[in-house]
């Protein structure tokens, strides 16, 4: 079974902006995420484990900051 990365996403420079996303690929610092809520691009600046893995799910907390690019 393929590993699924469940992300808790918080944008550090925008209060209250974030989301929950599932990814098939392990995220890394410097990757750019697009939040479906506002279609804005955000660069990952920090990644920590938010909960221990369960089954094929890995739970990560990701902190992002705004980039100038729009999707």
């Amino acid at each position: 079974m393929m590993t699924i990365y469940k992300l808790s996403i918080v944008v550090s420079d925008k209060r209250g902006v974030g989301g929950i996303q599932n990814l098939d690929k392990k995220p890394k610092i410097g990757d750019v995420l697009t939040l479906s809520k506002d279609k804005q691009c955000y660069k990952i600046t920090n990644i920590t484990e938010i909960m221990p893995p369960r089954g094929h799910f890995i739970y990560l907390h990701v902190i992002c900051k705004t980039t100038k690019n729009r999707s």
Partner: peptide, 11 residues
């Protein structure tokens, strides 16, 4: 639990 942790971190 995951959703509560997320809510705790976003605000």
């Amino acid at each position: 639990s995951f959703k509560i942790r997320y809510q705790n971190l976003i605000y």
